[in-house]
Design a protein around this nucleic acid. Structure first.
Length: 492
RNA sequence: CGGGAUGUAGCGUAGCCCGGUUAUCGCGCCUGGUUUGGGACCAGGAGGUCGCAAGUUCGAAUCUUGCCAUCCCGACCA
Protein backbone atom coordinates (compact mmCIF):
# COMPACT_ATOMS: atom_id res chain seq x y z
CA UNK A 1 0.00 0.00 0.00
CA UNK A 2 1.45 3.30 -1.02
CA UNK A 3 0.81 5.83 1.69
CA UNK A 4 2.43 9.07 0.64
CA UNK A 5 1.17 11.93 2.77
CA UNK A 6 0.62 15.46 1.61
CA UNK A 7 2.80 17.79 3.67
CA UNK A 8 1.36 20.58 5.80
CA UNK A 9 3.25 23.17 3.81
CA UNK A 10 1.98 21.86 0.47
CA UNK A 11 -1.71 21.73 1.35
CA UNK A 12 -2.84 21.84 4.95
CA UNK A 13 -6.39 20.68 4.26
CA UNK A 14 -5.22 17.77 2.16
CA UNK A 15 -2.68 16.84 4.83
CA UNK A 16 -5.50 16.68 7.36
CA UNK A 17 -7.65 14.51 5.11
CA UNK A 18 -4.72 12.22 4.37
CA UNK A 19 -4.10 11.67 8.07
CA UNK A 20 -7.71 10.81 8.77
CA UNK A 21 -8.03 8.41 5.85
CA UNK A 22 -4.56 6.89 5.59
CA UNK A 23 -4.26 6.78 9.38
CA UNK A 24 -7.48 4.74 9.26
CA UNK A 25 -9.42 6.88 11.68
CA UNK A 26 -12.39 7.36 9.37
CA UNK A 27 -13.53 7.15 5.80
CA UNK A 28 -16.11 8.75 3.56
CA UNK A 29 -19.44 6.98 3.39
CA UNK A 30 -22.25 6.51 0.90
CA UNK A 31 -24.17 9.25 2.71
CA UNK A 32 -23.41 12.85 1.90
CA UNK A 33 -21.53 14.55 4.69
CA UNK A 34 -21.45 11.47 6.88
CA UNK A 35 -18.35 9.46 7.74
CA UNK A 36 -17.60 5.93 8.76
CA UNK A 37 -15.53 5.94 11.93
CA UNK A 38 -13.15 3.03 11.51
CA UNK A 39 -12.02 0.76 14.36
CA UNK A 40 -8.80 2.71 15.04
CA UNK A 41 -10.67 6.00 15.16
CA UNK A 42 -13.47 4.54 17.20
CA UNK A 43 -11.01 3.11 19.71
CA UNK A 44 -9.70 6.65 20.17
CA UNK A 45 -13.23 7.95 20.67
CA UNK A 46 -13.94 5.15 23.17
CA UNK A 47 -10.89 6.14 25.20
CA UNK A 48 -11.93 9.79 25.17
CA UNK A 49 -15.50 8.85 26.03
CA UNK A 50 -14.46 6.62 28.91
CA UNK A 51 -12.35 9.31 30.55
CA UNK A 52 -15.04 11.97 30.14
CA UNK A 53 -17.74 9.63 31.37
CA UNK A 54 -15.73 8.95 34.51
CA UNK A 55 -15.23 12.69 35.05
CA UNK A 56 -18.96 13.34 34.63
CA UNK A 57 -19.79 10.66 37.16
CA UNK A 58 -17.20 12.00 39.60
CA UNK A 59 -19.01 15.35 39.42
CA UNK A 60 -22.34 13.75 40.26
CA UNK A 61 -23.87 13.16 36.86
CA UNK A 62 -25.76 10.12 35.60
CA UNK A 63 -26.41 8.90 32.07
CA UNK A 64 -29.79 8.55 30.37
CA UNK A 65 -31.05 8.29 26.84
CA UNK A 66 -33.70 10.33 25.01
CA UNK A 67 -35.24 9.76 21.56
CA UNK A 68 -33.57 10.63 18.28
CA UNK A 69 -36.82 12.18 17.03
CA UNK A 70 -38.27 15.43 18.26
CA UNK A 71 -41.88 16.27 17.34
CA UNK A 72 -41.88 19.56 15.47
CA UNK A 73 -44.21 21.19 17.98
CA UNK A 74 -41.76 20.49 20.79
CA UNK A 75 -38.83 21.61 18.73
CA UNK A 76 -40.35 24.99 18.02
CA UNK A 77 -41.29 25.66 21.65
CA UNK A 78 -38.10 27.53 22.52
CA UNK A 79 -38.12 30.08 19.74
CA UNK A 80 -34.50 31.16 19.64
CA UNK A 81 -33.22 27.61 19.83
CA UNK A 82 -35.58 26.50 17.06
CA UNK A 83 -34.67 29.44 14.89
CA UNK A 84 -30.97 28.86 15.37
CA UNK A 85 -31.13 25.25 14.22
CA UNK A 86 -34.04 25.36 11.76
CA UNK A 87 -31.86 25.72 8.67
CA UNK A 88 -29.94 22.54 9.36
CA UNK A 89 -32.62 20.09 10.44
CA UNK A 90 -33.32 16.75 8.83
CA UNK A 91 -37.03 16.01 9.04
CA UNK A 92 -38.93 12.72 8.93
CA UNK A 93 -42.24 13.10 7.11
CA UNK A 94 -43.26 9.50 6.31
CA UNK A 95 -43.13 6.15 8.05
CA UNK A 96 -43.40 3.68 5.20
CA UNK A 97 -42.10 2.75 1.74
CA UNK A 98 -43.85 0.63 -0.83
CA UNK A 99 -43.07 -1.10 -4.10
CA UNK A 100 -43.00 1.22 -7.06
CA UNK A 101 -45.87 0.10 -9.31
CA UNK A 102 -44.00 1.50 -12.34
CA UNK A 103 -40.57 0.00 -11.68
CA UNK A 104 -40.05 -3.53 -10.48
CA UNK A 105 -37.61 -3.84 -7.60
CA UNK A 106 -37.76 -0.13 -6.74
CA UNK A 107 -39.30 1.48 -3.69
CA UNK A 108 -41.11 4.76 -3.31
CA UNK A 109 -42.27 6.71 -0.29
CA UNK A 110 -45.86 5.68 0.39
CA UNK A 111 -47.91 8.86 0.10
CA UNK A 112 -50.55 7.20 2.30
CA UNK A 113 -48.03 7.03 5.13
CA UNK A 114 -47.52 10.72 5.80
CA UNK A 115 -46.98 11.54 9.47
CA UNK A 116 -49.59 13.69 11.20
CA UNK A 117 -46.73 15.67 12.71
CA UNK A 118 -43.23 15.81 11.27
CA UNK A 119 -40.39 14.52 13.40
CA UNK A 120 -37.19 16.54 13.56
CA UNK A 121 -34.02 14.49 13.90
CA UNK A 122 -32.34 16.06 16.93
CA UNK A 123 -29.65 18.61 16.17
CA UNK A 124 -29.48 18.92 20.00
CA UNK A 125 -31.82 17.58 22.66
CA UNK A 126 -32.91 20.49 24.86
CA UNK A 127 -36.47 20.37 23.53
CA UNK A 128 -37.20 16.68 24.05
CA UNK A 129 -35.38 16.67 27.37
CA UNK A 130 -37.07 19.73 28.83
CA UNK A 131 -40.42 18.40 27.72
CA UNK A 132 -39.52 15.28 29.71
CA UNK A 133 -38.21 17.19 32.72
CA UNK A 134 -41.62 18.82 33.06
CA UNK A 135 -42.89 15.48 34.29
CA UNK A 136 -39.92 14.89 36.61
CA UNK A 137 -39.96 18.15 38.52
CA UNK A 138 -42.56 19.33 41.03
CA UNK A 139 -40.61 20.36 44.10
CA UNK A 140 -37.22 21.82 44.97
CA UNK A 141 -36.58 18.35 46.40
CA UNK A 142 -36.54 17.00 42.82
CA UNK A 143 -33.61 19.26 41.99
CA UNK A 144 -30.94 19.31 40.81
CA UNK A 145 -31.23 16.92 37.89
CA UNK A 146 -27.76 16.12 36.56
CA UNK A 147 -28.16 14.05 33.42
CA UNK A 148 -25.81 13.34 30.57
CA UNK A 149 -26.54 11.58 27.31
CA UNK A 150 -24.11 9.93 24.86
CA UNK A 151 -25.74 10.19 21.48
CA UNK A 152 -25.60 11.03 17.82
CA UNK A 153 -27.07 14.23 16.43
CA UNK A 154 -27.66 15.49 12.91
CA UNK A 155 -26.96 18.95 11.59
CA UNK A 156 -27.39 19.28 7.85
CA UNK A 157 -24.24 21.27 7.15
CA UNK A 158 -23.56 22.76 3.74
CA UNK A 159 -19.90 21.98 3.81
CA UNK A 160 -18.56 19.08 5.78
CA UNK A 161 -15.09 17.95 6.83
CA UNK A 162 -14.10 14.67 8.41
CA UNK A 163 -14.51 14.93 12.21
CA UNK A 164 -14.52 18.75 12.18
CA UNK A 165 -17.97 19.09 10.71
CA UNK A 166 -20.00 16.09 9.66
CA UNK A 167 -23.75 15.93 9.07
CA UNK A 168 -24.07 13.28 11.75
CA UNK A 169 -21.72 13.27 14.69
CA UNK A 170 -21.27 11.57 18.03
CA UNK A 171 -21.20 13.63 21.19
CA UNK A 172 -22.33 13.86 24.75
CA UNK A 173 -24.80 16.44 25.92
CA UNK A 174 -25.31 17.22 29.58
CA UNK A 175 -28.66 18.72 30.55
CA UNK A 176 -29.05 19.89 34.10
CA UNK A 177 -31.89 21.50 36.03
CA UNK A 178 -31.40 23.64 39.11
CA UNK A 179 -33.39 25.52 41.75
CA UNK A 180 -31.28 28.67 41.65
CA UNK A 181 -29.48 30.77 39.12
CA UNK A 182 -26.27 30.65 41.17
CA UNK A 183 -26.28 26.88 41.19
CA UNK A 184 -26.86 26.70 37.44
CA UNK A 185 -24.07 29.17 36.71
CA UNK A 186 -21.77 27.21 38.99
CA UNK A 187 -22.64 24.01 37.10
CA UNK A 188 -21.89 25.73 33.78
CA UNK A 189 -18.43 26.79 34.85
CA UNK A 190 -17.74 23.51 36.64
CA UNK A 191 -18.34 21.58 33.43
CA UNK A 192 -16.20 24.02 31.49
CA UNK A 193 -13.41 23.15 33.93
CA UNK A 194 -14.02 19.45 33.36
CA UNK A 195 -13.69 19.98 29.62
CA UNK A 196 -10.57 22.10 29.95
CA UNK A 197 -8.97 19.51 32.23
CA UNK A 198 -9.83 16.68 29.90
CA UNK A 199 -8.60 18.38 26.75
CA UNK A 200 -5.38 19.59 28.35
CA UNK A 201 -4.48 16.62 30.51
CA UNK A 202 -5.61 13.76 28.28
CA UNK A 203 -5.58 15.17 24.76
CA UNK A 204 -2.56 17.37 25.53
CA UNK A 205 -4.20 20.29 23.74
CA UNK A 206 -3.96 23.61 25.58
CA UNK A 207 -7.17 25.63 25.65
CA UNK A 208 -8.34 29.09 26.54
CA UNK A 209 -11.42 29.25 28.69
CA UNK A 210 -13.76 32.09 27.99
CA UNK A 211 -17.23 33.42 27.35
CA UNK A 212 -18.78 33.88 23.93
CA UNK A 213 -20.11 37.20 22.77
CA UNK A 214 -23.82 37.52 21.96
CA UNK A 215 -23.08 36.84 18.28
CA UNK A 216 -21.43 33.51 18.95
CA UNK A 217 -23.74 32.37 21.73
CA UNK A 218 -25.67 29.08 21.56
CA UNK A 219 -29.23 29.60 20.32
CA UNK A 220 -31.39 29.75 23.43
CA UNK A 221 -28.59 30.37 25.94
CA UNK A 222 -28.04 33.33 28.26
CA UNK A 223 -24.31 32.70 28.30
CA UNK A 224 -22.07 30.34 26.40
CA UNK A 225 -18.75 29.40 27.96
CA UNK A 226 -16.20 27.75 25.74
CA UNK A 227 -12.75 26.33 25.42
CA UNK A 228 -10.81 27.47 22.38
CA UNK A 229 -7.80 25.67 20.95
CA UNK A 230 -5.27 26.75 18.34
CA UNK A 231 -4.46 24.54 15.37
CA UNK A 232 -1.07 24.37 13.64
CA UNK A 233 -2.28 26.42 10.69
CA UNK A 234 -3.09 29.27 13.04
CA UNK A 235 -6.85 28.83 12.99
CA UNK A 236 -8.86 28.55 16.17
CA UNK A 237 -11.15 25.66 16.96
CA UNK A 238 -13.99 25.68 19.45
CA UNK A 239 -13.36 22.49 21.36
CA UNK A 240 -16.26 22.47 23.78
CA UNK A 241 -19.11 24.59 25.07
CA UNK A 242 -21.04 24.89 28.31
CA UNK A 243 -24.22 26.92 28.29
CA UNK A 244 -26.09 28.73 31.03
CA UNK A 245 -29.64 28.55 29.67
CA UNK A 246 -31.32 30.70 32.31
CA UNK A 247 -35.02 29.93 32.55
CA UNK A 248 -35.57 29.97 28.79
CA UNK A 249 -36.34 26.29 28.40
CA UNK A 250 -38.25 26.07 31.67
CA UNK A 251 -40.51 28.85 30.43
CA UNK A 252 -40.86 27.33 26.97
CA UNK A 253 -41.87 23.96 28.41
CA UNK A 254 -43.52 25.29 31.57
CA UNK A 255 -41.22 23.54 34.00
CA UNK A 256 -41.88 24.99 37.45
CA UNK A 257 -41.16 23.79 40.95
CA UNK A 258 -42.45 24.64 44.38
CA UNK A 259 -39.72 26.21 46.50
CA UNK A 260 -39.28 25.99 50.28
CA UNK A 261 -41.54 29.03 50.67
CA UNK A 262 -44.31 27.20 48.79
CA UNK A 263 -43.96 29.47 45.74
CA UNK A 264 -43.86 28.37 42.09
CA UNK A 265 -40.58 29.17 40.30
CA UNK A 266 -39.16 28.35 36.89
CA UNK A 267 -36.26 25.94 36.84
CA UNK A 268 -32.73 27.08 35.88
CA UNK A 269 -30.93 25.12 33.19
CA UNK A 270 -27.54 24.32 31.73
CA UNK A 271 -26.37 22.22 28.82
CA UNK A 272 -22.85 21.29 27.76
CA UNK A 273 -21.29 19.18 25.09
CA UNK A 274 -18.20 17.95 23.31
CA UNK A 275 -18.18 15.91 20.15
CA UNK A 276 -16.10 13.78 17.81
CA UNK A 277 -14.85 17.15 16.61
CA UNK A 278 -12.32 16.86 19.43
CA UNK A 279 -10.62 14.19 17.33
CA UNK A 280 -10.10 16.81 14.63
CA UNK A 281 -8.55 19.09 17.24
CA UNK A 282 -6.24 16.36 18.42
CA UNK A 283 -5.08 15.60 14.88
CA UNK A 284 -4.38 19.21 13.97
CA UNK A 285 -2.72 20.07 17.26
CA UNK A 286 -0.04 17.37 17.34
CA UNK A 287 0.46 15.60 14.05
CA UNK A 288 3.34 16.14 11.62
CA UNK A 289 4.28 15.34 8.04
CA UNK A 290 4.95 11.70 8.95
CA UNK A 291 1.46 11.21 10.31
CA UNK A 292 -0.61 11.26 13.46
CA UNK A 293 0.81 11.82 16.92
CA UNK A 294 -1.41 10.26 19.58
CA UNK A 295 -1.28 11.51 23.16
CA UNK A 296 -0.29 8.44 25.22
CA UNK A 297 -3.10 8.76 27.75
CA UNK A 298 -5.82 8.22 25.17
CA UNK A 299 -3.90 6.53 22.35
CA UNK A 300 -5.74 3.50 20.95
CA UNK A 301 -2.40 1.71 21.10
CA UNK A 302 0.46 2.91 23.31
CA UNK A 303 3.28 0.57 22.37
CA UNK A 304 4.04 -1.50 19.30
CA UNK A 305 6.76 -4.13 19.21
CA UNK A 306 8.46 -4.94 15.92
CA UNK A 307 10.68 -8.02 15.65
CA UNK A 308 13.79 -7.98 13.47
CA UNK A 309 14.14 -11.55 12.27
CA UNK A 310 17.31 -13.07 10.86
CA UNK A 311 16.41 -16.46 9.46
CA UNK A 312 13.75 -18.90 10.61
CA UNK A 313 15.67 -20.02 13.69
CA UNK A 314 15.61 -16.49 15.14
CA UNK A 315 11.82 -16.33 15.27
CA UNK A 316 11.10 -18.47 18.34
CA UNK A 317 13.92 -16.80 20.25
CA UNK A 318 12.59 -13.30 19.57
CA UNK A 319 8.94 -14.30 20.02
CA UNK A 320 9.80 -15.80 23.39
CA UNK A 321 11.66 -12.70 24.55
CA UNK A 322 8.82 -10.45 23.42
CA UNK A 323 6.22 -12.51 25.26
CA UNK A 324 7.85 -11.53 28.54
CA UNK A 325 7.99 -7.85 27.57
CA UNK A 326 4.32 -7.86 26.52
CA UNK A 327 3.35 -9.42 29.82
CA UNK A 328 5.24 -6.88 31.89
CA UNK A 329 3.73 -3.96 29.91
CA UNK A 330 0.21 -5.32 30.26
CA UNK A 331 0.78 -5.73 33.99
CA UNK A 332 1.27 -1.96 34.14
CA UNK A 333 -1.93 -1.35 32.18
CA UNK A 334 -0.08 -0.34 29.03
CA UNK A 335 -1.70 -1.30 25.72
CA UNK A 336 0.72 -3.14 23.47
CA UNK A 337 0.69 -4.94 20.15
CA UNK A 338 3.32 -7.38 18.98
CA UNK A 339 3.39 -7.10 15.20
CA UNK A 340 5.11 -10.27 14.07
CA UNK A 341 3.20 -10.26 10.80
CA UNK A 342 5.68 -11.72 8.33
CA UNK A 343 4.15 -10.17 5.22
CA UNK A 344 5.66 -6.77 5.85
CA UNK A 345 9.21 -5.95 6.73
CA UNK A 346 10.40 -3.78 9.60
CA UNK A 347 10.82 -0.58 7.61
CA UNK A 348 7.25 -0.79 6.38
CA UNK A 349 5.99 -1.32 9.92
CA UNK A 350 8.02 1.62 11.24
CA UNK A 351 6.41 3.95 8.72
CA UNK A 352 2.94 2.50 9.27
CA UNK A 353 2.96 2.94 13.05
CA UNK A 354 4.39 6.42 12.72
CA UNK A 355 1.51 7.26 10.42
CA UNK A 356 -0.88 5.96 13.05
CA UNK A 357 0.87 7.92 15.78
CA UNK A 358 1.63 5.07 18.17
CA UNK A 359 3.64 6.83 20.93
CA UNK A 360 6.35 4.24 21.54
CA UNK A 361 7.89 1.67 19.24
CA UNK A 362 10.07 -1.17 20.46
CA UNK A 363 12.27 -3.01 17.96
CA UNK A 364 14.44 -5.98 18.76
CA UNK A 365 16.49 -8.64 16.99
CA UNK A 366 19.01 -11.27 17.98
CA UNK A 367 21.74 -8.65 18.25
CA UNK A 368 19.70 -6.81 20.91
CA UNK A 369 18.81 -9.95 22.80
CA UNK A 370 22.49 -10.81 23.08
CA UNK A 371 23.07 -7.39 24.63
CA UNK A 372 19.85 -7.57 26.69
CA UNK A 373 18.52 -4.34 25.12
CA UNK A 374 15.82 -3.12 22.75
CA UNK A 375 15.65 -0.15 20.45
CA UNK A 376 13.06 2.36 21.68
CA UNK A 377 11.69 5.02 19.36
CA UNK A 378 9.36 7.78 20.53
CA UNK A 379 6.84 9.16 18.04
CA UNK A 380 6.80 12.76 19.22
CA UNK A 381 10.51 13.50 18.63
CA UNK A 382 11.38 10.41 16.53
CA UNK A 383 14.42 9.89 18.77
CA UNK A 384 15.76 6.38 19.10
CA UNK A 385 17.66 4.92 22.02
CA UNK A 386 18.93 1.60 23.20
CA UNK A 387 17.38 0.58 26.52
CA UNK A 388 17.98 -2.40 28.81
CA UNK A 389 15.30 -5.08 28.85
CA UNK A 390 15.56 -5.14 32.65
CA UNK A 391 12.99 -2.69 33.96
CA UNK A 392 11.83 -1.94 30.41
CA UNK A 393 8.12 -1.76 31.27
CA UNK A 394 8.69 0.79 34.00
CA UNK A 395 10.95 2.77 31.70
CA UNK A 396 8.27 2.81 29.01
CA UNK A 397 5.62 3.82 31.52
CA UNK A 398 7.71 6.87 32.37
CA UNK A 399 8.46 7.53 28.72
CA UNK A 400 4.75 7.59 27.90
CA UNK A 401 4.28 10.25 30.56
CA UNK A 402 7.22 12.22 29.17
CA UNK A 403 5.71 12.11 25.70
CA UNK A 404 2.34 13.21 27.04
CA UNK A 405 4.04 16.17 28.75
CA UNK A 406 6.23 16.98 25.80
CA UNK A 407 3.47 17.21 23.23
CA UNK A 408 1.41 19.33 25.59
CA UNK A 409 4.34 21.66 26.22
CA UNK A 410 5.04 21.87 22.52
CA UNK A 411 1.42 22.74 21.74
CA UNK A 412 1.34 25.20 24.63
CA UNK A 413 4.48 26.97 23.45
CA UNK A 414 3.05 27.20 19.94
CA UNK A 415 -0.25 28.53 21.27
CA UNK A 416 1.43 31.12 23.49
CA UNK A 417 3.71 32.30 20.70
CA UNK A 418 0.63 32.86 18.63
CA UNK A 419 -1.32 35.17 20.86
CA UNK A 420 -0.39 38.71 19.88
CA UNK A 421 -1.67 42.08 20.95
CA UNK A 422 -2.86 44.57 18.38
CA UNK A 423 -3.31 48.23 19.26
CA UNK A 424 -4.38 49.69 15.95
CA UNK A 425 -6.57 48.60 13.09
CA UNK A 426 -3.60 48.33 10.71
CA UNK A 427 -1.67 46.24 13.16
CA UNK A 428 -4.73 44.06 13.73
CA UNK A 429 -5.25 43.35 10.03
CA UNK A 430 -1.57 42.78 9.46
CA UNK A 431 -1.31 40.27 12.30
CA UNK A 432 -4.31 38.33 11.01
CA UNK A 433 -2.90 38.22 7.51
CA UNK A 434 0.71 37.49 8.26
CA UNK A 435 0.82 35.59 11.53
CA UNK A 436 -2.50 33.80 12.06
CA UNK A 437 -3.19 32.70 15.63
CA UNK A 438 -5.08 34.70 18.23
CA UNK A 439 -5.05 38.46 18.24
CA UNK A 440 -5.80 40.12 21.56
CA UNK A 441 -7.44 43.47 21.05
CA UNK A 442 -9.89 45.97 22.43
CA UNK A 443 -13.51 45.90 21.27
CA UNK A 444 -16.35 48.25 22.05
CA UNK A 445 -18.70 45.46 23.12
CA UNK A 446 -21.28 45.81 20.35
CA UNK A 447 -22.53 43.18 17.91
CA UNK A 448 -22.39 45.70 15.07
CA UNK A 449 -18.67 46.20 15.50
CA UNK A 450 -18.07 42.47 15.79
CA UNK A 451 -20.00 41.92 12.54
CA UNK A 452 -18.03 44.59 10.74
CA UNK A 453 -14.73 43.16 11.87
CA UNK A 454 -15.82 39.73 10.70
CA UNK A 455 -16.91 41.11 7.36
CA UNK A 456 -13.60 42.83 6.78
CA UNK A 457 -11.15 40.29 8.18
CA UNK A 458 -13.03 36.95 8.49
CA UNK A 459 -11.94 36.96 12.12
CA UNK A 460 -14.45 36.44 14.90
CA UNK A 461 -14.24 36.96 18.62
CA UNK A 462 -13.39 33.50 19.87
CA UNK A 463 -13.99 34.43 23.46
CA UNK A 464 -13.64 36.89 26.25
CA UNK A 465 -11.12 35.01 28.39
CA UNK A 466 -12.17 34.18 31.94
CA UNK A 467 -10.16 36.04 34.59
CA UNK A 468 -9.34 38.58 31.93
CA UNK A 469 -7.37 41.46 33.30
CA UNK A 470 -9.23 44.75 33.07
CA UNK A 471 -7.44 47.39 31.06
CA UNK A 472 -8.75 50.61 29.59
CA UNK A 473 -8.33 50.95 25.89
CA UNK A 474 -9.95 51.94 22.62
CA UNK A 475 -11.86 49.62 20.26
CA UNK A 476 -9.68 48.48 17.40
CA UNK A 477 -12.32 49.46 14.84
CA UNK A 478 -14.43 52.26 16.28
CA UNK A 479 -12.04 53.77 18.83
CA UNK A 480 -14.80 53.72 21.44
CA UNK A 481 -13.77 52.99 25.03
CA UNK A 482 -13.19 49.39 26.09
CA UNK A 483 -12.37 47.89 29.47
CA UNK A 484 -10.70 44.68 28.34
CA UNK A 485 -9.10 42.85 25.46
CA UNK A 486 -10.86 39.97 23.71
CA UNK A 487 -9.43 37.21 21.55
CA UNK A 488 -9.96 37.33 17.82
CA UNK A 489 -9.05 34.64 15.31
CA UNK A 490 -10.06 33.01 12.12
CA UNK A 491 -11.75 29.79 13.08
CA UNK A 492 -12.89 26.38 11.90
C1' C B 1 -26.38 27.02 -1.29
C1' G B 2 -22.98 30.39 -4.95
C1' G B 3 -17.97 30.21 -7.67
C1' G B 4 -13.83 26.91 -9.30
C1' A B 5 -11.61 21.99 -9.96
C1' U B 6 -11.81 16.76 -10.11
C1' G B 7 -14.04 11.70 -10.80
C1' U B 8 -10.80 5.52 -15.23
C1' A B 9 -9.21 -1.60 -10.41
C1' G B 10 -8.10 -0.71 -3.11
C1' C B 11 -4.58 3.89 -4.14
C1' G B 12 -2.06 7.06 -7.77
C1' U B 13 -2.55 7.52 -13.04
C1' A B 14 -2.28 7.23 -19.24
C1' G B 15 -5.93 7.50 -22.94
C1' C B 16 -10.56 12.09 -23.80
C1' C B 17 -9.22 17.71 -27.47
C1' C B 18 -9.62 14.52 -32.92
C1' G B 19 -15.38 8.31 -31.05
C1' G B 20 -13.24 2.51 -33.78
C1' U B 21 -10.41 -4.67 -31.97
C1' U B 22 -8.73 -7.11 -25.81
C1' A B 23 -8.56 0.45 -21.54
C1' U B 24 -2.16 2.10 -20.04
C1' C B 25 1.43 2.04 -16.30
C1' G B 26 3.14 1.95 -11.10
C1' C B 27 1.90 0.67 -6.07
C1' G B 28 -1.15 -2.61 -3.45
C1' C B 29 -3.70 -7.68 -3.59
C1' C B 30 -3.37 -13.54 -4.40
C1' U B 31 0.07 -18.18 -5.01
C1' G B 32 5.08 -20.13 -4.51
C1' G B 33 10.04 -19.13 -3.16
C1' U B 34 14.05 -16.17 -1.24
C1' U B 35 14.08 -12.43 2.69
C1' U B 36 13.73 -9.11 7.27
C1' G B 37 18.11 -3.16 11.79
C1' G B 38 13.70 2.55 7.79
C1' G B 39 8.28 1.58 3.11
C1' A B 40 12.38 -6.05 0.04
C1' C B 41 13.22 -9.25 -4.45
C1' C B 42 12.07 -13.12 -8.29
C1' A B 43 8.32 -15.94 -10.95
C1' G B 44 3.28 -16.65 -11.92
C1' G B 45 -1.79 -14.70 -11.26
C1' A B 46 -6.50 -12.20 -10.01
C1' G B 47 -8.97 -7.68 -10.13
C1' G B 48 -12.70 -2.63 -14.43
C1' U B 49 -20.98 -1.10 -14.42
C1' C B 50 -14.24 4.14 -17.31
C1' G B 51 -18.83 8.32 -10.79
C1' C B 52 -24.48 7.44 -12.08
C1' A B 53 -28.47 8.05 -15.69
C1' A B 54 -30.38 9.42 -20.25
C1' G B 55 -29.26 11.05 -25.23
C1' U B 56 -26.43 11.41 -30.19
C1' U B 57 -24.13 7.39 -33.20
C1' C B 58 -23.41 1.41 -36.89
C1' G B 59 -20.13 2.05 -32.56
C1' A B 60 -19.09 6.20 -26.44
C1' A B 61 -13.93 6.23 -21.24
C1' U B 62 -13.93 9.88 -25.42
C1' C B 63 -19.46 14.07 -27.84
C1' U B 64 -24.35 16.34 -25.33
C1' U B 65 -27.66 16.95 -21.08
C1' G B 66 -29.05 15.97 -16.15
C1' C B 67 -27.69 14.06 -11.52
C1' C B 68 -24.23 12.33 -7.59
C1' A B 69 -19.69 12.56 -4.83
C1' U B 70 -15.04 14.68 -3.23
C1' C B 71 -11.61 18.85 -2.82
C1' C B 72 -10.61 24.30 -2.78
C1' C B 73 -12.75 29.45 -2.06
C1' G B 74 -17.21 32.00 0.03
C1' A B 75 -22.00 32.15 3.17
C1' C B 76 -23.62 28.80 7.58
C1' C B 77 -21.98 26.04 11.73
C1' A B 78 -19.81 22.12 17.28
Amino acid sequence: MSKELTTRAADYSQWYNDLVIKGELADYSAVRGCMVIKPYGYALWENMRDVLDRMFKETGHVNAYFPLFVPKSLFEAEEKNAEGFAKECAVVTHYRLKNDPNQKGKLIVDPEAKLEEELVIRPTSEAIIWNTYKGWIQSYRDLPILVNQWANVVRWEMRTRLFLRTAEFLWQEGHTAHATKEEAVEETTKMLEVYANFVEQYMAVPVIKGVKTANERFAGAEDTYCIEALMQDGKALQAGTSHFLGQNFAKAFDVQFLNKENKQEYVWATSWGVSTRLIGALIMAHSDDQGLVMPPRIAPLQVVIVPIYKGEESKPIIDDKVAGIVQSLKALGISVKYDNNDHTRPGWKFAEYELKGVPVRVALGLRDIENNVVELARRDTKEKQSVSIDGLATYIQQLLEDIQQNIFNRALAFRNENIREANSWDEFVQLLDTKAGFVSAHWDGTSETEDKIKEQTKATIRCIPLQNKLENGACILTGKPSIQRVLFARAY
